[in-house]
Amino acid sequence: MAYKIIASQCTSCSACEAECPNVAISEKGGTFVINPKKCTECIGYFDVPQCVAVCPVDNTCVIDTGYPRYQAAG
């Protein structure tokens, strides 16, 4: 799985962009989006997903169940 941003709730504050260890987040059409190919759910970096921890709007950065659970390499 990867995380995704619910666009209708995103305030475009950009806080998540700077915190993502995988540079998976970028601005697109006024709000921010997560590139699911780059997102590791922060596994291997931090205990909690950084985008979730920093986002001012609860339940805006959420698990995208459309992707399989990320497996840490090795």
Partner: peptide, 14 residues
């Protein structure tokens, strides 16, 4: 600088 690192009860960060 739109990003913030705390939440204040008098703020709606929109």
């Amino acid at each position: 600088a739109p990003a913030c690192n705390i939440q204040c009860n008098y703020c709606n960060r929109k």
